[in-house]
């Protein structure tokens, strides 16, 4: 059988199996496990978007929390009913366009992504001239400015009180559908010529420029697409948690996403997917460390805050001892899988 057709069939099969599993999970697992599954999908979207910017185009961006904040706020403002908004804004009145908007959920997520991409464009024009660590600091600064703006734009965002009671629309199927959309777009993009240009810029920017590539334009493109999906991830996350406030979107959030991307391997899509699942599950299971537990008869008191200690250590160890992460730049593909099985058969 032609391997292209075979792979396509296998993809369809995999998606069908995933769909069945999610359908089963929705009806049989408890709320906590479903929440973890949801978080995996959202984290995967965020990790993929950062991987596009940093892993595939080589721009070290630390502004993810800002894009997520925009996505989450725009989506929440779109999806809340006007009555709810009037009830919640107690510091100042809601201003006009926000006060009447009421859109379906899918549109609110899309709007979150589009606005995040627009902000990405505004940011990209000044900062993408910078390289390396300067870019990191500048994007970090922009994320912080966005947060300060959200705190101070009380008539639009309800200021530091945040937004509560966002109606929960994002079920397992919805979240994973968005993940599939993200995956499809990114894989198509990265396998196209544009994707090759991104990778060329990552590997050697000067060489790419000498070859006549419009480096700045392609960087802006990659940055905006990344921001778009970060906004979508933020919107879904806000919906999943049902409350958002400006304190959520600090550098810590960017750090989490960065950790997933580095652990999975910069420039590996399957790596990002795998590490989103592993790290999300690990982060949740480490909650046990913060509760009191007994070990070999001794009562160990819970240590609040221990989770972040462990996680910063994990990231440190990865960067010191296994810099390429889980997958490096490799991918798990059907072809590789079949080659592996073939070799086993003949060996």
């Amino acid at each position: 059988m032609n391997s292209v057709i075979r792979n396509r069939l296998l993809n369809v099969l995999l998606i069908a199996v995933l769909g069945l599993f999610l359908y089963w999970a929705e009806h049989n697992l408890d709320g906590y496990k479903i929440q973890i599954l949801n978080l995996i999908a959202v984290n995967a979207i965020l990790a993929l978007s950062l991987n596009l910017i940093y892993g595939f185009t080589g721009m070290f961006s630390l502004g993810h929390a800002g894009f997520m904040a925009i996505g989450a706020y725009v989506s929440a403002l779109c999806v809340l009913s006007p009555d709810q908004k009037e009830m919640m804004w107690i510091l100042e009145e809601v201003v006009w366009p926000v006060s009447v908007i009421h859109t379906p959920f899918w549109f609110s997520v899309l709007a979150g992504g589009i606005l995040a991409a627009l902000f990405g464009l505004i940011i990209a024009l000044p900062v993408l001239r910078l390289g390396g660590d300067y870019l990191g600091i500048a994007t970090l600064g922009f994320a912080e400015i966005i947060r300060v703006l959200i705190v101070n734009a009380t008539p639009i965002t309800n200021g530091s009180l945040g937004i509560k009671g966002i109606p929960m629309h994002s079920t397992l199927l919805v979240n994973y559908a968005w993940l599939l959309v993200t995956l499809y777009c990114l894989i198509r993009l990265l396998n196209s010529n544009v994707g090759n240009v991104f990778k060329a810029i990552r590997d050697d920017e000067i060489a790419a420029r000498v070859m006549g590539v419009n480096v700045f334009g392609y960087k802006v493109l990659s940055f905006c697409i990344g921001a778009f999906f970060a906004g979508i991830g933020g919107a879904l996350m806000g919906n999943l948690l049902t409350t958002i406030d400006p304190k959520m979107f600090t550098f810590l959030l960017t750090f989490n996403v960065l950790m997933i991307v580095v652990a999975g391997g910069l420039g590996s899509i399957t790596g990002s997917l795998l590490s989103s699942a592993i790290i999300t599950v690990l982060l949740e299971s480490l909650r046990a460390v913060e509760d009191p537990f007994s070990l070999a008869g001794f009562d160990v008191p819970g240590i609040p805050g221990m989770r972040m200690v462990v996680f910063s250590l994990v990231l440190l160890c990865i960067i010191l001892y296994r810099r390429e992460g889980l997958m490096g730049m490799r991918e798990i593909t059907w072809n590789a899988l079949f080659r592996f099985i073939d070799r086993r058969k003949h060996a």
Binding site: V262, M308, V309, F311, S312, L316, I319, R323
Partner: peptide, 22 residues
Amino acid sequence: PRISALISAIAVSFFIESLSVV
């Protein structure tokens, strides 16, 4: 690569902060 050291620095920073919280 320089960015690796930068990520290491970020991790150290978070480590010191969270260890201090503990």
